[in-house]
C-alpha cells in the first residue's frame, strides 16, 4: 500500500478526563488506573463522572455506556481535526469507523443477565438485546454522526492496537473512504461486578494526506508503515522485570517507524487477571518520535490504545 496517512485529531475519555488532562497526568507520572478511583466508578459512569452532556447522546432511549463514550470521543476527534458535522452530512460515505472491542458492551449484558434472572429465565428485554452486539459502539457512533462509510469492529490479540492502525490504513489506502475514525471504546468489565471497572474511549481521526491538505487541515502526524511481523507472537512470552525510568522497553514495539520507547515506570497491573505469563502490557509510557518526526522537530507524546489487556501505549502525535 502506498500513500501517507495523517493523524489529524484525537478524542479521548478516560477516568482522568479528556485528552488534555490525561496527557498531563501522564507527563506527571500519574497512573490513571490507580489515581482515578476506578473502584468507585460504576459501570457506565464515565460520561456522568465527567459531566458530559452532548446532544448526540439523545439519539436513543437506551445507550450502552461504551456507545456513549464512543459517540463523545468521536465528536471530540472530529472537532479536534476541524471536521464540521456538515462535512460528514455532505459526504457520509467518505467517512468510516473502525473500533476495537474485545469485551464489548459488558454492562448491558450484565444488566440483561440480571433481568433474565429476575424473570426466571423467561423473557429478555428487546431493548437490551438490541444493544448486545460487539459492534454497538461503532454502529451507534455512526448513527449519531451520520457516518455511512465502512463500519467495522474488530478484536484480536495483544497487538490489537497495531492491527487497528493497519486495518484503518487499509481502508484509506484502498480508497474505501478518505477519513477513518479509529480506536476503541472498552470497559474492563468482566462479568464480576465486584471487580473494579474502568472505561476508556480513544478515537483517532486518520485521513488520507491529500484529503487533509485539500480541506486545509492543520499539520498532523504522519502515520508511516506499520510492521506487524512478530514470529514469536504465538508463543507465550516470559514475564518482563519491573521497569525503571527511564528505560527502554525490553521488547521493542513492532512498529518499524518508531525508533525506541521508554516507560514512565507505571505498571498499571493486570486487571483482567490474564496471568503472569504475558508481558505487563498495561503500562503507561511514551514512545520516541520517528525519524521523520524528529526531522520536523515535532517531539513526541504518548497515545493510549486498547489492547487485549486494556490500555497500552502507542504512538506519536501533536505537531
Amino acid at each position: 500500500m502506498t500513500g501517507d496517512i495523517l493523524l489529524t485529531g484525537i478524542g479521548l475519555l478516560s477516568p482522568l478526563g479528556g485528552k488534555e488532562s490525561f496527557f498531563r497526568a501522564l507527563g506527571e507520572a500519574e497512573a490513571p488506573c490507580r489515581t482515578a478511583g476506578n473502584g468507585s466508578l460504576p459501570p457506565g459512569g464515565l460520561t456522568e463522572l465527567l459531566g458530559i452532556k452532548s446532544p448526540k447522546l439523545q439519539i436513543a432511549r437506551y445507550l450502552d455506556p461504551l456507545a456513549k463514550n464512543a459517540i463523545v470521543a468521536l465528536e471530540e476527534a472530529m472537532g479536534d481535526a476541524g471536521i464540521a458535522p456538515d462535512a460528514v452530512a455532505q459526504d457520509p460515505y467518505g467517512f468510516g469507523i473502525l473500533l476495537a472491542a474485545t469485551r464489548g458492551p459488558g454492562a448491558t449484558r450484565n444488566k440483561a443477565y440480571e433481568q433474565l434472572r429476575a424473570r426466571q429465565g423467561k423473557l429478555l428485554s428487546s431493548t437490551l438485546f438490541s444493544n448486545f452486539g460487539y459492534n454497538i459502539a461503532a454502529a451507534t457512533a455512526a448513527l449519531a454522526h451520520g457516518i455511512k462509510g465502512p463500519n467495522l469492529t474488530v478484536a484480536g490479540r495483544s497487538n490489537l492496537s497495531l492491527l487497528l492502525l493497519r486495518r484503518a490504513r487499509q481502508l484509506l489506502a484502498t480508497g474505501r473512504c478518505h477519513t477513518v475514525f479509529t480506536g476503541f471504546s472498552e470497559s474492563l468489565v468482566n462479568g464480576q461486578a465486584a471487580r473494579p471497572v474502568s472505561e476508556w474511549s480513544c478515537i483517532f481521526c486518520l485521513e488520507r494526506t491529500e484529503r487533509a491538505r485539500q480541506r486545509g487541515a492543520r499539520a498532523g502526524v504522519v502515520l508511516t508503515e506499520i510492521e506487524l511481523e512478530s514470529p514469536g507472537l504465538a508463543q507465550p512470552r516470559p514475564c518482563a522485570p519491573a521497569f525503571r525510568l527511564p528505560r527502554a522497553i525490553p521488547q521493542p514495539l513492532p512498529v518499524a517507524a518508531l525508533a525506541e520507547a521508554e516507560t514512565l515506570d507505571l505498571d498499571l497491573g493486570d486487571p483482567l487477571g490474564i496471568g503472569p505469563e504475558y508481558l505487563p502490557l498495561l503500562q503507561a509510557g511514551r514512545i520516541k518520535a520517528t525519524e521523520r518526526l524528529r526531522v520536523e522537530k515535532t517531539g513526541y507524546i504518548a497515545l493510549p490504545v486498547s489492547s487485549r489487556h486494556g490500555v497500552s501505549l502507542l504512538g506519536v502525535a501533536r505537531a
Binding site: Y134, N135, R166, R167, E229, S230, P231
Partner: peptide, 9 residues
C-alpha cells in the same frame, strides 16, 4: 504468527 483478527459486525 502475523495478523489474527476477529471481525464482529
Amino acid at each position: 504468527s502475523s495478523e489474527a483478527l476477529i471481525v464482529t459486525t
